[in-house]
């Protein structure tokens, strides 16, 4: 097999994931795009491992071992990422990453929120939803 086939497919998948990370607004969709990028890297690792094991007599199989490590790290990453997204959704009532800009600087329309004290900042943008959720969970 020509090595360009898996390499080109891997590059295209990586750029698809890149578009998803940059263009998506929901945090879970961003996590899906990150998975796409990680899978593109995995395909590259496997293809080059198969090529080098035959062409260069490489018996370490570093590509496949690193692929397994990447898969495990991706599983850990998706678990932690979803836990963070769920915690943010529980505290703010949204998982929309365009609205999570408490640490941003220089947003005039967010001025009163981001210029407030540290204790007031997380509570102010989603006071209504936070109060509703507090009542719902109580």
């Amino acid at each position: 097999m020509h090595l360009a086939y898996p390499a080109v497919l891997s590059a295209l998948l990586f750029c698809t994931g890149l578009y998803g990370v940059l263009a998506r607004r929901n945090a879970i969709l961003v996590l899906m795009s990150v998975e796409l990028m990680l899978n593109a890297v995995n395909l590259n690792l496997v293809a080059f491992d198969v090529w080098l094991s035959k062409a260069a007599e490489e018996t370490l199989h570093s590509g496949q071992a690193l692929t397994l490590f990447t898969i495990a790290i991706a599983a850990a990453e998706i678990g932690i990422g979803l836990a963070i997204v769920l915690a943010v959704h529980r505290n703010r009532g949204t998982s929309d990453i365009d609205k999570l800009r408490d640490t941003a600087e220089g947003h005039e329309h967010d001025g009163p929120d981001s210029d407030g004290s540290d204790s007031g900042t997380p509570a102010t943008p989603a006071t209504g939803t936070a109060a509703e959720k507090a009542e719902a969970t109580a």
């Binding site: 020509h2 090595l3 390499a7 080109v8 590059a11 090529w51 062409a55």
Partner: peptide, 11 residues
């Protein structure tokens, strides 16, 4: 990628 691996084949 295409320019680099134009003459590379996986056996």
């Amino acid at each position: 990628v295409v320019d680099a691996f134009r003459t590379t084949w996986i056996d």
